[in-house]
Design a protein around this nucleic acid. Structure first.
Ligand SMILES: [Mn+2]
Ligand SMILES: [Mn+2]
Ligand SMILES: [Zn+2]
Ligand SMILES: [Zn+2]
Lengths: 123, 123
DNA sequence: CATTCTAATGCAACTAAGTTGCAATAAACC
DNA sequence: GGTTTATTGCAACTTAGTTGCATTAGAATG
């Protein structure tokens, strides 16, 4: 699906900030924060960014993930997969899809593992 | 282990706020935030609370969990178990211990499931 | 017990991620 | 092109959590 389709199929207007946000998120291997995003797109407005994240998250175009440090990280919502948050270096990593775990009564939508990433486990 | 032991074995001084914090956390079935804690212990100072959480977390006396809403929730670190965060009502629930999942290269210390809790799945 | 040392407290001021109000702008639809 | 209304961009705000610092009070020592 193109950026244009992702945006317009949900009834959103096709604006410059939205196209840029989707294009940049497409190039990321890992979720990014506003701080990281605005390093790539320095002219972005904070409100526009966060409002876009809210609308796109509700439309399931993107996922938000809470870091250990009180920041939100965002990624495109393509194939569902779990994430790992390193409590040492605070990196957020996308993991390979995992066989779905079911919990009686609960409707599980995502899984986050926490601990030490490979880099931090060595040292 | 008594509150006194938990505190002093880590080289911390035995103070009134620390004893009260541990006694209140002991009575909780689920992790609680500062907001919830201070409803139970209205005289607690915010700095004292958060500084205690930091020291106790480093000493592995308590666990901190990030909610979906940018707040930290705290619980005693007794038996390790996963948690469920409802993305609808935002409740944080302790789950029963789960067979340990291992991820090649990663050192997993905790697992958080997100989705809809039983109450919110019905409605 | 009194003395000393220093960790911990409590208060106020601060920080920073994220939100909100609102006037100006520009998509979308005719 | 003209009208309508969602969206932008700016500044002001909110709020969870942190920090600096003077005061207090554990704990160790004699
Ligand atoms: Mn991912
Ligand atoms: Mn728990
Ligand atoms: Zn790491
Ligand atoms: Zn719920």
């Amino acid at each position: 699906m193109t950026f244009e389709e992702k945006i317009t199929l949900n009834g959103f207007r096709l604006t410059a900030p939205r196209k840029k946000i989707l294009s940049i998120l497409t190039n990321q291997k890992q979720p990014i924060s506003f701080e990281e995003y605005s390093a790539i797109d320095p002219l972005i407005d904070k409100s526009t960014f966060y409002r876009t994240m809210q609308s796109f998250e509700q439309a399931h175009i993107i996922n938000g993930i809470e870091s250990d440090e009180g920041k939100r990280y965002f990624e495109l919502n393509e194939t569902i997969h779990p994430h790992f948050i390193c409590q040492h270096c605070h990196a957020i990593t996308c993991l390979n899809p995992l066989p779905l775990i079911s919990l009686e009564g609960y409707h599980v939508e995502s899984i986050i593992f926490k601990g030490k990433c490979p880099l931090c486990s060595d040292s």
